[in-house]
Design a binder for these strands. Structure first.
Lengths: 203, 203
DNA sequence: CATAAAACATCAACCAGGTCAAATATTGAC
DNA sequence: GTCAATATTTGACCTGGTTGATGTTTTATG
Protein backbone atom coordinates (compact mmCIF):
# COMPACT_ATOMS: atom_id res chain seq x y z
CA UNK A 1 0.00 0.00 0.00
CA UNK A 2 1.82 3.07 -1.20
CA UNK A 3 1.41 5.99 1.10
CA UNK A 4 0.96 8.35 -1.77
CA UNK A 5 0.49 7.23 -5.25
CA UNK A 6 1.99 9.98 -7.27
CA UNK A 7 -0.72 9.81 -9.86
CA UNK A 8 -0.41 13.24 -11.25
CA UNK A 9 1.45 15.38 -13.60
CA UNK A 10 4.97 14.21 -13.89
CA UNK A 11 7.70 16.65 -14.52
CA UNK A 12 7.60 16.64 -18.27
CA UNK A 13 4.33 18.46 -18.30
CA UNK A 14 6.15 21.62 -17.49
CA UNK A 15 6.66 21.54 -21.23
CA UNK A 16 2.97 21.82 -22.12
CA UNK A 17 1.21 23.82 -19.46
CA UNK A 18 -1.73 24.37 -21.79
CA UNK A 19 -1.94 28.06 -20.98
CA UNK A 20 -2.16 28.04 -17.28
CA UNK A 21 0.16 29.93 -15.08
CA UNK A 22 1.80 29.91 -11.74
CA UNK A 23 -1.34 29.53 -9.67
CA UNK A 24 -2.50 26.51 -11.53
CA UNK A 25 0.66 24.58 -10.98
CA UNK A 26 1.01 25.71 -7.43
CA UNK A 27 -2.51 24.69 -6.65
CA UNK A 28 -2.00 21.22 -8.02
CA UNK A 29 1.26 20.90 -6.24
CA UNK A 30 0.02 21.80 -2.81
CA UNK A 31 -3.30 20.16 -3.36
CA UNK A 32 -1.54 16.88 -3.84
CA UNK A 33 0.80 17.45 -0.96
CA UNK A 34 -2.15 18.14 1.29
CA UNK A 35 -3.87 15.01 0.06
CA UNK A 36 -0.81 12.95 0.75
CA UNK A 37 -0.41 14.38 4.18
CA UNK A 38 -4.01 13.87 5.14
CA UNK A 39 -3.75 10.33 4.02
CA UNK A 40 -0.29 9.54 5.16
CA UNK A 41 0.12 11.02 8.56
CA UNK A 42 -3.33 11.39 9.85
CA UNK A 43 -4.41 7.97 8.78
CA UNK A 44 -1.93 5.38 7.70
CA UNK A 45 0.55 6.11 10.42
CA UNK A 46 -2.19 5.76 12.97
CA UNK A 47 -3.11 2.32 11.78
CA UNK A 48 0.41 1.13 12.17
CA UNK A 49 1.01 2.39 15.64
CA UNK A 50 -2.41 1.94 17.14
CA UNK A 51 -4.27 -1.07 15.95
CA UNK A 52 -4.27 -4.10 18.17
CA UNK A 53 -4.40 -6.44 15.27
CA UNK A 54 -3.53 -5.04 11.94
CA UNK A 55 -6.39 -3.40 10.19
CA UNK A 56 -6.07 -2.20 6.67
CA UNK A 57 -7.16 1.27 5.72
CA UNK A 58 -10.15 -0.20 4.05
CA UNK A 59 -11.22 -2.17 7.09
CA UNK A 60 -10.78 0.76 9.37
CA UNK A 61 -12.92 2.72 7.02
CA UNK A 62 -15.73 0.23 7.41
CA UNK A 63 -15.31 0.40 11.13
CA UNK A 64 -15.57 4.16 11.18
CA UNK A 65 -18.70 4.25 9.19
CA UNK A 66 -20.30 1.65 11.39
CA UNK A 67 -19.26 3.53 14.46
CA UNK A 68 -20.71 6.72 13.11
CA UNK A 69 -24.02 5.46 11.87
CA UNK A 70 -25.75 3.09 14.14
CA UNK A 71 -27.65 0.15 12.73
CA UNK A 72 -26.18 0.37 9.30
CA UNK A 73 -26.82 -2.55 6.97
CA UNK A 74 -24.28 -4.48 4.98
CA UNK A 75 -25.56 -3.27 1.63
CA UNK A 76 -25.86 0.34 2.68
CA UNK A 77 -22.30 0.24 3.80
CA UNK A 78 -21.25 -1.23 0.50
CA UNK A 79 -22.98 1.55 -1.35
CA UNK A 80 -21.41 4.21 0.82
CA UNK A 81 -17.96 2.91 0.22
CA UNK A 82 -18.42 2.10 -3.40
CA UNK A 83 -17.74 -1.60 -3.20
CA UNK A 84 -19.83 -4.67 -3.87
CA UNK A 85 -22.06 -6.12 -1.17
CA UNK A 86 -19.89 -9.21 -1.22
CA UNK A 87 -16.82 -7.21 -0.38
CA UNK A 88 -18.71 -5.46 2.37
CA UNK A 89 -19.80 -8.74 3.84
CA UNK A 90 -16.30 -10.12 3.85
CA UNK A 91 -14.82 -7.08 5.48
CA UNK A 92 -17.42 -7.23 8.18
CA UNK A 93 -16.53 -10.86 8.71
CA UNK A 94 -13.07 -9.80 9.60
CA UNK A 95 -14.14 -6.94 11.84
CA UNK A 96 -16.53 -9.25 13.61
CA UNK A 97 -13.87 -11.88 14.14
CA UNK A 98 -11.74 -9.17 15.72
CA UNK A 99 -14.58 -8.28 18.02
CA UNK A 100 -14.89 -4.74 16.75
CA UNK A 101 -18.38 -4.87 15.32
CA UNK A 102 -21.49 -6.92 15.99
CA UNK A 103 -23.91 -8.43 13.50
CA UNK A 104 -27.54 -8.73 14.40
CA UNK A 105 -30.46 -9.56 12.16
CA UNK A 106 -33.05 -6.86 12.07
CA UNK A 107 -36.34 -7.58 13.73
CA UNK A 108 -38.31 -5.53 11.25
CA UNK A 109 -36.81 -7.02 8.15
CA UNK A 110 -35.23 -10.33 8.84
CA UNK A 111 -33.31 -10.28 5.58
CA UNK A 112 -31.23 -7.38 6.78
CA UNK A 113 -28.40 -7.59 9.27
CA UNK A 114 -27.77 -4.53 11.35
CA UNK A 115 -24.27 -3.59 12.27
CA UNK A 116 -23.21 -1.95 15.46
CA UNK A 117 -19.80 -1.16 16.78
CA UNK A 118 -18.54 -2.91 19.90
CA UNK A 119 -17.06 -0.97 22.81
CA UNK A 120 -13.56 -1.87 21.67
CA UNK A 121 -14.41 -0.80 18.17
CA UNK A 122 -15.72 2.48 19.42
CA UNK A 123 -12.68 3.06 21.53
CA UNK A 124 -10.43 2.43 18.57
CA UNK A 125 -12.24 4.96 16.45
CA UNK A 126 -12.18 7.49 19.22
CA UNK A 127 -8.48 7.03 19.75
CA UNK A 128 -8.01 7.64 16.11
CA UNK A 129 -9.93 10.88 16.13
CA UNK A 130 -8.10 12.05 19.18
CA UNK A 131 -4.72 11.40 17.63
CA UNK A 132 -5.77 13.12 14.47
CA UNK A 133 -6.99 16.12 16.37
CA UNK A 134 -3.84 16.35 18.42
CA UNK A 135 -1.71 16.42 15.32
CA UNK A 136 -3.87 18.86 13.52
CA UNK A 137 -4.83 21.26 16.25
CA UNK A 138 -1.45 22.97 16.66
CA UNK A 139 -1.28 23.62 12.95
CA UNK A 140 -4.66 25.27 12.99
CA UNK A 141 -3.75 27.18 16.07
CA UNK A 142 -0.54 28.44 14.60
CA UNK A 143 -2.38 29.63 11.56
CA UNK A 144 -4.67 31.70 13.70
CA UNK A 145 -8.39 31.94 13.73
CA UNK A 146 -8.76 34.50 11.04
CA UNK A 147 -6.51 32.87 8.50
CA UNK A 148 -7.99 29.47 9.22
CA UNK A 149 -11.38 30.78 8.41
CA UNK A 150 -10.06 32.37 5.29
CA UNK A 151 -8.47 29.12 4.32
CA UNK A 152 -11.66 27.19 4.83
CA UNK A 153 -13.57 29.69 2.74
CA UNK A 154 -11.13 29.34 -0.08
CA UNK A 155 -11.07 25.58 0.18
CA UNK A 156 -14.79 25.55 0.04
CA UNK A 157 -14.93 27.80 -2.94
CA UNK A 158 -12.44 25.75 -4.88
CA UNK A 159 -14.22 22.52 -4.07
CA UNK A 160 -17.53 23.91 -5.19
CA UNK A 161 -15.96 25.24 -8.34
CA UNK A 162 -14.64 21.81 -9.15
CA UNK A 163 -17.92 20.17 -8.29
CA UNK A 164 -19.87 22.45 -10.55
CA UNK A 165 -17.82 21.33 -13.47
CA UNK A 166 -18.13 17.64 -13.05
CA UNK A 167 -20.88 15.17 -13.48
CA UNK A 168 -21.92 13.31 -10.43
CA UNK A 169 -21.02 9.65 -10.40
CA UNK A 170 -23.81 7.27 -9.54
CA UNK A 171 -22.03 6.21 -6.38
CA UNK A 172 -23.19 7.97 -3.25
CA UNK A 173 -21.23 10.99 -2.18
CA UNK A 174 -18.76 10.30 0.55
CA UNK A 175 -16.36 13.02 -0.35
CA UNK A 176 -16.41 14.61 3.05
CA UNK A 177 -15.13 11.35 4.46
CA UNK A 178 -17.68 11.47 7.20
CA UNK A 179 -17.25 15.07 8.24
CA UNK A 180 -20.88 15.77 7.89
CA UNK A 181 -22.35 19.22 7.72
CA UNK A 182 -26.08 19.84 7.87
CA UNK A 183 -25.91 22.54 5.22
CA UNK A 184 -23.57 20.66 2.94
CA UNK A 185 -23.06 22.60 -0.26
CA UNK A 186 -22.23 19.45 -2.15
CA UNK A 187 -25.79 18.32 -1.70
CA UNK A 188 -27.08 21.38 -3.46
CA UNK A 189 -25.10 20.45 -6.52
CA UNK A 190 -25.14 16.71 -6.49
CA UNK A 191 -28.12 15.01 -4.97
CA UNK A 192 -28.34 13.29 -1.67
CA UNK A 193 -25.96 12.78 1.20
CA UNK A 194 -25.56 9.20 2.19
CA UNK A 195 -24.75 10.13 5.75
CA UNK A 196 -27.76 12.26 6.34
CA UNK A 197 -30.62 9.90 7.12
CA UNK A 198 -29.19 8.18 10.13
CA UNK A 199 -26.59 10.44 11.45
CA UNK A 200 -26.87 11.84 14.89
CA UNK A 201 -28.55 8.74 16.19
CA UNK A 202 -26.14 8.48 19.04
CA UNK A 203 -24.70 11.86 19.67
CA UNK B 1 -11.47 0.73 -6.24
CA UNK B 2 -13.55 3.14 -4.25
CA UNK B 3 -13.33 6.63 -5.59
CA UNK B 4 -13.07 8.04 -2.13
CA UNK B 5 -12.51 5.88 0.80
CA UNK B 6 -14.18 7.74 3.57
CA UNK B 7 -11.47 6.96 6.03
CA UNK B 8 -12.05 9.76 8.41
CA UNK B 9 -14.08 10.89 11.25
CA UNK B 10 -17.53 9.52 11.08
CA UNK B 11 -20.40 11.48 12.42
CA UNK B 12 -20.21 10.36 16.01
CA UNK B 13 -17.05 12.29 16.55
CA UNK B 14 -19.06 15.43 16.67
CA UNK B 15 -19.61 14.16 20.18
CA UNK B 16 -15.95 14.29 21.19
CA UNK B 17 -14.25 17.09 19.34
CA UNK B 18 -11.39 17.03 21.79
CA UNK B 19 -11.39 20.80 22.20
CA UNK B 20 -11.15 21.97 18.70
CA UNK B 21 -13.62 24.29 17.15
CA UNK B 22 -15.26 25.22 13.95
CA UNK B 23 -12.12 25.71 11.94
CA UNK B 24 -10.74 22.35 12.77
CA UNK B 25 -13.77 20.47 11.60
CA UNK B 26 -14.21 22.64 8.57
CA UNK B 27 -10.65 22.15 7.56
CA UNK B 28 -10.91 18.40 7.79
CA UNK B 29 -14.15 18.43 5.96
CA UNK B 30 -13.02 20.43 2.98
CA UNK B 31 -9.58 18.93 3.03
CA UNK B 32 -11.13 15.56 2.45
CA UNK B 33 -13.52 16.83 -0.14
CA UNK B 34 -10.65 18.37 -2.02
CA UNK B 35 -8.71 15.14 -1.83
CA UNK B 36 -11.63 13.19 -3.15
CA UNK B 37 -12.16 15.59 -5.98
CA UNK B 38 -8.55 15.64 -6.99
CA UNK B 39 -8.56 11.92 -7.04
CA UNK B 40 -11.98 11.29 -8.41
CA UNK B 41 -12.58 13.72 -11.18
CA UNK B 42 -9.16 14.72 -12.25
CA UNK B 43 -7.82 11.23 -12.28
CA UNK B 44 -10.10 8.27 -12.09
CA UNK B 45 -12.66 9.65 -14.49
CA UNK B 46 -9.92 10.26 -16.98
CA UNK B 47 -8.76 6.71 -16.88
CA UNK B 48 -12.21 5.47 -17.66
CA UNK B 49 -12.95 7.71 -20.55
CA UNK B 50 -9.56 7.97 -22.11
CA UNK B 51 -7.45 4.91 -21.88
CA UNK B 52 -7.32 2.73 -24.94
CA UNK B 53 -6.96 -0.40 -22.95
CA UNK B 54 -7.87 -0.22 -19.35
CA UNK B 55 -5.11 1.01 -17.16
CA UNK B 56 -5.45 1.03 -13.42
CA UNK B 57 -4.57 4.09 -11.44
CA UNK B 58 -1.47 2.38 -10.30
CA UNK B 59 -0.32 1.51 -13.78
CA UNK B 60 -0.99 4.99 -15.01
CA UNK B 61 1.05 6.23 -12.16
CA UNK B 62 4.00 4.17 -13.29
CA UNK B 63 3.53 5.49 -16.78
CA UNK B 64 3.54 9.07 -15.63
CA UNK B 65 6.70 8.73 -13.68
CA UNK B 66 8.43 7.06 -16.57
CA UNK B 67 7.21 9.74 -18.91
CA UNK B 68 8.50 12.42 -16.58
CA UNK B 69 11.90 11.04 -15.77
CA UNK B 70 13.74 9.62 -18.68
CA UNK B 71 15.85 6.50 -18.25
CA UNK B 72 14.41 5.54 -14.93
CA UNK B 73 15.25 2.07 -13.67
CA UNK B 74 12.86 -0.53 -12.41
CA UNK B 75 14.08 -0.39 -8.85
CA UNK B 76 14.16 3.38 -8.69
CA UNK B 77 10.59 3.45 -9.81
CA UNK B 78 9.65 0.94 -7.15
CA UNK B 79 11.25 3.10 -4.50
CA UNK B 80 9.51 6.21 -5.73
CA UNK B 81 6.14 4.58 -5.60
CA UNK B 82 6.71 2.68 -2.41
CA UNK B 83 6.24 -0.79 -3.81
CA UNK B 84 8.50 -3.79 -4.14
CA UNK B 85 10.79 -4.16 -7.14
CA UNK B 86 8.82 -7.24 -8.13
CA UNK B 87 5.62 -5.28 -8.31
CA UNK B 88 7.35 -2.62 -10.32
CA UNK B 89 8.62 -5.21 -12.74
CA UNK B 90 5.19 -6.69 -13.23
CA UNK B 91 3.54 -3.37 -13.83
CA UNK B 92 6.15 -2.53 -16.40
CA UNK B 93 5.48 -5.85 -18.08
CA UNK B 94 1.95 -4.78 -18.61
CA UNK B 95 2.81 -1.30 -19.80
CA UNK B 96 5.33 -2.76 -22.19
CA UNK B 97 2.83 -5.24 -23.56
CA UNK B 98 0.49 -2.34 -24.21
CA UNK B 99 3.23 -0.56 -26.08
CA UNK B 100 3.35 2.38 -23.72
CA UNK B 101 6.86 2.03 -22.38
CA UNK B 102 10.09 0.50 -23.65
CA UNK B 103 12.63 -1.54 -21.75
CA UNK B 104 16.29 -1.34 -22.68
CA UNK B 105 19.27 -2.67 -20.79
CA UNK B 106 21.68 0.00 -19.82
CA UNK B 107 24.98 0.06 -21.62
CA UNK B 108 26.88 1.35 -18.60
CA UNK B 109 25.53 -1.11 -16.09
CA UNK B 110 24.18 -4.16 -17.78
CA UNK B 111 22.26 -5.23 -14.69
CA UNK B 112 20.00 -2.26 -14.98
CA UNK B 113 17.16 -1.84 -17.43
CA UNK B 114 16.28 1.65 -18.43
CA UNK B 115 12.72 2.64 -19.04
CA UNK B 116 11.50 5.13 -21.54
CA UNK B 117 8.03 6.08 -22.60
CA UNK B 118 6.85 5.33 -26.13
CA UNK B 119 5.22 7.99 -28.29
CA UNK B 120 1.80 6.57 -27.51
CA UNK B 121 2.60 6.52 -23.85
CA UNK B 122 3.67 10.10 -23.98
CA UNK B 123 0.58 11.11 -25.82
CA UNK B 124 -1.59 9.42 -23.23
CA UNK B 125 0.06 11.27 -20.41
CA UNK B 126 -0.19 14.55 -22.26
CA UNK B 127 -3.86 14.03 -22.94
CA UNK B 128 -4.32 13.43 -19.28
CA UNK B 129 -2.63 16.63 -18.28
CA UNK B 130 -4.56 18.56 -20.83
CA UNK B 131 -7.86 17.27 -19.60
CA UNK B 132 -6.90 17.97 -16.05
CA UNK B 133 -5.90 21.50 -16.90
CA UNK B 134 -9.07 22.15 -18.83
CA UNK B 135 -11.16 21.11 -15.87
CA UNK B 136 -9.14 23.01 -13.38
CA UNK B 137 -8.37 26.21 -15.23
CA UNK B 138 -11.86 27.71 -15.13
CA UNK B 139 -12.03 27.17 -11.39
CA UNK B 140 -8.77 28.99 -10.87
CA UNK B 141 -9.83 31.70 -13.22
CA UNK B 142 -13.11 32.23 -11.46
CA UNK B 143 -11.31 32.51 -8.18
CA UNK B 144 -9.20 35.30 -9.58
CA UNK B 145 -5.49 35.78 -9.47
CA UNK B 146 -5.28 37.40 -6.11
CA UNK B 147 -7.35 34.90 -4.22
CA UNK B 148 -5.66 32.00 -5.96
CA UNK B 149 -2.35 33.23 -4.75
CA UNK B 150 -3.75 33.66 -1.27
CA UNK B 151 -5.10 30.16 -1.39
CA UNK B 152 -1.80 28.70 -2.46
CA UNK B 153 -0.03 30.55 0.33
CA UNK B 154 -2.40 29.16 2.89
CA UNK B 155 -2.23 25.68 1.47
CA UNK B 156 1.50 25.85 1.61
CA UNK B 157 1.52 27.06 5.17
CA UNK B 158 -0.81 24.33 6.32
CA UNK B 159 1.18 21.66 4.56
CA UNK B 160 4.39 22.83 6.11
CA UNK B 161 2.78 22.98 9.49
CA UNK B 162 1.70 19.40 9.16
CA UNK B 163 5.07 18.34 7.86
CA UNK B 164 6.87 19.92 10.76
CA UNK B 165 4.92 17.82 13.16
CA UNK B 166 5.45 14.47 11.57
CA UNK B 167 8.35 12.15 11.22
CA UNK B 168 9.46 11.40 7.73
CA UNK B 169 8.82 7.89 6.57
CA UNK B 170 11.75 6.07 5.02
CA UNK B 171 10.04 5.96 1.68
CA UNK B 172 11.06 8.68 -0.71
CA UNK B 173 8.89 11.74 -0.80
CA UNK B 174 6.43 11.79 -3.62
CA UNK B 175 3.88 13.93 -1.94
CA UNK B 176 3.77 16.49 -4.66
CA UNK B 177 2.72 13.75 -7.05
CA UNK B 178 5.20 14.93 -9.59
CA UNK B 179 4.54 18.64 -9.44
CA UNK B 180 8.11 19.45 -8.86
CA UNK B 181 9.36 22.75 -7.60
CA UNK B 182 13.05 23.62 -7.49
CA UNK B 183 12.70 25.34 -4.14
CA UNK B 184 10.51 22.71 -2.58
CA UNK B 185 9.92 23.47 1.06
CA UNK B 186 9.31 19.85 1.85
CA UNK B 187 12.94 19.18 1.08
CA UNK B 188 14.04 21.61 3.74
CA UNK B 189 12.19 19.62 6.34
CA UNK B 190 12.50 16.08 5.14
CA UNK B 191 15.55 15.20 3.15
CA UNK B 192 15.82 14.61 -0.52
CA UNK B 193 13.44 14.85 -3.40
CA UNK B 194 13.29 11.72 -5.47
CA UNK B 195 12.34 13.66 -8.55
CA UNK B 196 15.18 16.07 -8.43
CA UNK B 197 18.17 14.23 -9.84
CA UNK B 198 16.85 13.45 -13.29
CA UNK B 199 14.05 15.78 -13.87
CA UNK B 200 14.11 18.23 -16.71
CA UNK B 201 16.04 15.84 -18.89
CA UNK B 202 13.66 16.27 -21.75
CA UNK B 203 11.94 19.54 -21.32
C1' DC C 1 43.59 -12.15 -10.31
C1' DA C 2 40.10 -14.66 -7.80
C1' DT C 3 36.50 -14.63 -5.28
C1' DA C 4 33.08 -12.97 -2.09
C1' DA C 5 29.53 -9.59 -1.54
C1' DA C 6 26.24 -6.43 -3.23
C1' DA C 7 22.99 -4.74 -6.62
C1' DC C 8 19.44 -5.34 -10.19
C1' DA C 9 15.71 -7.46 -12.42
C1' DT C 10 12.85 -11.24 -12.69
C1' DC C 11 10.34 -15.46 -11.47
C1' DA C 12 7.45 -18.46 -8.59
C1' DA C 13 4.41 -19.12 -4.93
C1' DC C 14 1.35 -16.94 -2.15
C1' DC C 15 -2.07 -13.59 -0.06
C1' DA C 16 -5.62 -9.92 0.47
C1' DG C 17 -9.29 -7.76 -1.17
C1' DG C 18 -11.90 -6.92 -4.78
C1' DT C 19 -15.32 -8.79 -8.64
C1' DC C 20 -19.32 -11.50 -10.51
C1' DA C 21 -22.61 -15.14 -10.40
C1' DA C 22 -25.18 -18.28 -7.84
C1' DA C 23 -27.62 -19.77 -3.63
C1' DT C 24 -30.62 -18.67 0.34
C1' DA C 25 -33.98 -16.31 2.97
C1' DT C 26 -37.37 -12.87 3.46
C1' DT C 27 -40.59 -9.47 2.06
C1' DG C 28 -44.29 -7.22 -0.47
C1' DA C 29 -47.42 -6.95 -4.42
C1' DC C 30 -50.85 -9.07 -6.77
C1' DG D 1 -50.25 -18.59 -2.94
C1' DT D 2 -47.10 -17.10 -6.32
C1' DC D 3 -43.69 -14.36 -7.96
C1' DA D 4 -40.58 -10.61 -8.36
C1' DA D 5 -37.62 -7.85 -5.67
C1' DT D 6 -34.39 -7.25 -1.82
C1' DA D 7 -30.53 -8.48 1.52
C1' DT D 8 -26.88 -11.24 2.49
C1' DT D 9 -23.65 -14.79 2.02
C1' DT D 10 -20.82 -18.04 -0.47
C1' DG D 11 -17.58 -19.75 -4.04
C1' DA D 12 -14.69 -19.30 -8.09
C1' DC D 13 -11.81 -16.12 -9.96
C1' DC D 14 -8.71 -11.91 -10.93
C1' DT D 15 -5.48 -8.36 -9.89
C1' DG D 16 -1.89 -6.33 -7.72
C1' DG D 17 0.70 -6.61 -4.08
C1' DT D 18 4.20 -9.48 -1.05
C1' DT D 19 8.45 -12.47 0.00
C1' DG D 20 12.13 -15.37 -1.18
C1' DA D 21 15.09 -17.63 -4.62
C1' DT D 22 17.72 -17.18 -8.91
C1' DG D 23 20.77 -15.47 -12.62
C1' DT D 24 23.58 -11.95 -14.06
C1' DT D 25 26.64 -8.19 -13.54
C1' DT D 26 29.31 -5.11 -10.87
C1' DT D 27 32.21 -3.84 -7.00
C1' DA D 28 35.17 -4.61 -3.19
C1' DT D 29 38.75 -7.18 -1.05
C1' DG D 30 42.43 -10.45 0.12
Amino acid sequence: MPAHDGLSSAAETGATPVKTGEGFYCFLRYGHILSSLLREFLESSFLEQFCPRRLTRSQFCFLKLIAGNSELQVGELARCLGVSPAASSKNIDRLERLGLVVRETSSEDRRATLLTVSPEGRRLVEDFERLKASQLAPVIEELGEERTEEFCDLLREVCLGLLERTTAPDAPCMRCAGYYSPDCSVVELHGECSLKPRRGVEA
